[in-house]
Design a protein around this nucleic acid. Structure first.
Length: 762
RNA sequence: GGUUGAGUAGCUCAGCUGGUUAGAGCAUUCGGUUUACAUCCGAAAGGUCACUGGUUCGAACCCAGUCUCAACCACCA
């Protein structure tokens, strides 16, 4: 054995050895174990990393999952760690589009089938990146069972679920206010938007009091402050706060829209802030989230002013055809001519809704959207959580999850991205004369318009249905378009919905798709799974929905225990980011100190249970030293046994042991008990810490030093037994060095050849 | 604005259900070591457990209030 532990060579050797002997699959482990397994299933799902991106420090927390799997495997369970990778819909498409941009192209140059295939190939080329890096970390996942989120089996399951939901009346389609980016041509989820500080002019616009009889002495107009005067065309009311005495007499009267000259009512609503601006709020349900809510509450109509291409439409009168920024300028001129602008505050600071990628402006717009009615679906979830059928590692997670679920918000599931699972809805061309389409014609030119007209025969501009179908980018059906829901095309007269499912709609079915629901042997044996570890940031999007889908489809919860780990931050306690220069690349850490050290640094050095876990390289270095310590203890044992020509028996009776020997063995016994107990209740840090303390201080510094002068068998029996047990306890935390040492060290014949399938000490 | 969490050694954090003298790693200082390991060993120094009050035989821990920081959600017409 070398004088120091060489993690670079040995980690690679050890991992290849594990793969070669098939230790990661429950079946393989069973064979290796020969006898003594308990045949009980234990399963952990790996949260799928993005297929196309390298791992980051957060992924190093997957070690927690690996700890549970290795622990249970050693206890004799048929332990299955099920891996997979996510297609990550929009994220992936975005990365690919960036690449296209560098080549001077964009997605508008391709029909959707070609584009989809290109992205898919791009993902396939890069899909091993994350997996190979997780292997470096030592994950003992059964890679042969790897599931890719866009595989055919996954799509089949997702379609079956959607169709079942549709047949049971849980799916509907309606207008919905979405974050629409005219720049990307898609909606963004609330998650994917941001606010950007900006300075915009705030216009004070006068609305004249209408023809309805007015009380003596009242002013002739109401003034409204707005940053978006171009949306005045879509105003349907003016709202004031019911407690605002200034406007008490106006409520119920009419004012005149200064652009359309139409009469709109003055209503009252608690939402209006008396202090802000003039205390009068224009209500534009078509283009503002709050106005939409207020409009709905008061039964007001909704007017949409902006088309999907970002231009103002025919309702926008004089500014139709312009983009909103240009329209705003022109509208201001018009209003000024009419004398309807009271004043302009040029230095008004507000925040503008933008996408989180490039910071382009987001338009709140009403679009037809597919929805899942969550009302009934969530009841069983609430009851399962309340009855602790699904347990959380901290009480606040249970409380937070329940709080969110109980809101029972409908779930909008359609996205306008290409890279995803296409919604299996079919629009009849003959029955929906108002279908709009965008497509690339055979000369490669982008076209859009009414499908019926494009197919018609006029001025040589018509296209064949085949040409449109093969170049299709997007179908835009009206709000009340007729459709069929089924897996395959109902016939030539139909176009498939081009919207795709929200990624969470498929990843929400992860426990089912990975176990190959409904009739595979894995599903029967390993569902429900046992332990699910995740970042708390996706508690609602992912965890709650997995429970929902699991209960809906199988009647059973998908996992029994949920462990939320904190966010790994820089040493300064702040989110890792390039701009703060506090980022850490896990792969570099592995090269420098070894995966074992990284795992320990994160789990024992930090605290995964806290909301934040700062990453400290000094700690990782400390655990690298610990790996070396272990290596050298085993060298000492081997050397001393050899030098003293000792024949160590497998068992010794208490009467043959000295007092200090028995003391050490009794400390070992309580260590085994506490570590087992701590792992059973997911106290990873405590467990790891006590093993560390035992090996370094109790075993090496105290006991080992004290027996150096002894040459009797009982001392070495005690030392070796304690050490072998201790590194077994340590194996789930530091799999590589313990396996490497296990191979080298002299051990009783009764012990198995590999520590990975050895018996957990009791 | 709402919700939640945090504040313990110079730094990063533990302290498991209220129980002796509050712990660890790193950093610092002093000393040792031709050793299983310098990726080592021994020792020292370092704390008003944010603050104020309360409950208790007993509080870092429970309760109330105050201050500071952070995160999440909402939002600025």
């Amino acid at each position: 054995m070398n004088k120091t532990y060489d993690h670079k060579t040995l980690e690679k050797e050890v991992y290849e050895m594990w793969e070669k002997i098939g230790a990661f699959s429950p079946e393989g482990a069973k064979t290796l174990r020969e006898k003594g397994g308990n045949n009980l299933p234990y399963s952990v799902l790996m949260p799928p990393p993005n297929a196309n991106a390298p791992i980051h420090c957060g992924h190093a927390t997957y070690s927690l999952q690996d700890i549970m799997i290795r622990y249970k495997r050693m206890q004799g369970f048929d332990a299955l760690y099920l891996p997979g990778t996510d297609h990550a819909g929009f994220e992936t498409q975005y990365v690919y589009e960036k690449k296209l941009k560098a080549e001077g192209k964009s997605r508008f140059d391709f029909d959707r089938d070609t584009f989809y295939k290109d992205v898919l190939n791009f993902v396939k080329e890069n899909s091993d990146t994350a997996i190979n890096q997780l292997k470096l970390l030592g994950m003992s996942a059964d890679w042969d069972r790897n599931t890719f989120m866009l595989g055919q089996k996954v799509i089949d399951i997702v379609y079956d679920t959607f169709i079942k939901m549709y047949n049971e009346g849980l799916v509907y389609r309606e207008g919905y206010m979405v974050n629409y980016s005219t720049f990307y041509g898609t909606t963004f989820s609330d998650l994917e938007t941001d606010y950007k500080d900006s300075v915009s002019p705030l216009y004070y616009v006068k609305y004249a009091i209408g023809a309805t009889p007015k009380k003596e002495g009242l002013p002739l107009y109401m003034t409204v402050a707005t940053v978006r005067p171009e949306t005045i065309y879509a105003d349907v009311a003016i709202a004031v706060n019911p407690n605002d005495k200034r406007y008490k007499d106006f409520v119920g009267k009419k004012v005149i829209n200064p652009l359309t000259n139409e009469e709109i009512p003055v209503i009252e609503d608690e939402y209006v802030d008396i202090e802000f601006g003039t205390g009068c709020l224009k209500i534009t349900p078509g283009h503002d989230f709050n106005d939409y809510k207020i409009g709905k509450k008061h039964g007001l109509s909704v007017i949409s002013l902006i088309n999907l291409d970002g231009r103002m439409n025919e309702f926008a009168g004089e500014v139709a055809g312009l983009f909103p920024s240009a329209a705003r300028k022109k509208v201001v001129e018009i209003l000024q001519e009419k004398g309807a602008i009271e004043k302009i505050n040029d230095k008004y600071e507000n925040r503008v809704l933008v996408d989180y990628k490039e910071g382009n402006v987001i338009e709140p717009m009403i679009l037809p959207n597919w929805f899942i009615n969550m009302d009934k679906l969530l009841d069983p979830v609430i009851s399962a959580i309340e009855k602790n059928e699904v347990k959380f590692n901290l009480p606040e997670w249970k409380r937070d999850t329940l709080r969110w679920i109980k809101e029972k918000k409908p779930w909008p599931i359609s996205r306008q991205t290409v890279f995803g699972i296409r919604i299996p809805a079919w629009y009849s061309i003959s029955e929906n004369p108002d279908l709009q389409v965008t497509f690339v014609d055979k000369s490669g030119v982008y076209r859009s318009g009414n499908l019926k007209q494009m197919l018609g025969t006029n001025n040589g501009k018509d296209y064949s249905l085949d040409e449109i179908k093969s170049g299709l980018q997007k179908v835009i059906p009206s709000k009340d378009a007729k459709y069929l829901i089924q897996k395959d095309s109902p016939g030539d007269d139909f176009l498939q919905e081009t919207d795709t499912f929200d990624t969470w709609f498929s990843s929400g079915q992860w426990p089912l798709t990975t176990t190959k629901y409904p009739d595979s042997s894995d599903f029967k044996k390993y569902y429900p799974t046992d332990f699910l570890d995740s970042g708390y940031d996706i508690m609602f999007f992912w965890i709650a929905r997995m429970i929902m889908f699991g209960l809906y489809l199988t009647g059973e919860i998908p996992f029994k225990n949920v462990y939320f780990h904190g966010m790994v931050t820089g040493k300064d306690g702040r989110k890792m980011s390039k701009s703060k220069n506090n980022g850490v690349n896990p792969v570099e850490m592995i090269e420098k100190y070894g995966a074992d050290a990284l795992r320990m640094g994160l789990i024992v050095g930090g605290n995964t249970e806290a909301k934040f876990s700062p990453f400290d390289e000094d700690k990782v270095r400390g655990f690298r030293n610990f790996a070396n310590k272990i290596w050298n203890v085993s060298r000492f044992i081997n050397q001393k046994i050899e030098d003293d020509h000792l024949n160590i028996p497998d068992e010794m009776s208490d009467s043959d042991l000295q007092k200090e020997d028995k003391e050490l063995l009794s400390k070992l016994k309580s260590l085994i008990e506490s570590v087992t107990k701590d792992l059973d209740r997911y106290k990873f840090k405590l467990a790891g810490e006590s093993i560390y303390d035992f090996i370094w201080n109790t075993l090496a510094n105290d006991y080992l030093e004290s027996i150096k002068s002894r040459s009797d068998v009982s001392a070495m029996f005690t030392l070796r037994r304690s050490f072998l047990s201790a590194i077994k306890l340590l194996h789930p935390f530091m799999p590589f060095v313990t396996e490497a040492v296990w191979k080298e060290i002299s051990k009783p014949k009764s012990e198995s050849k590999y520590i990975i399938i050895s018996k957990w000490p009791i």
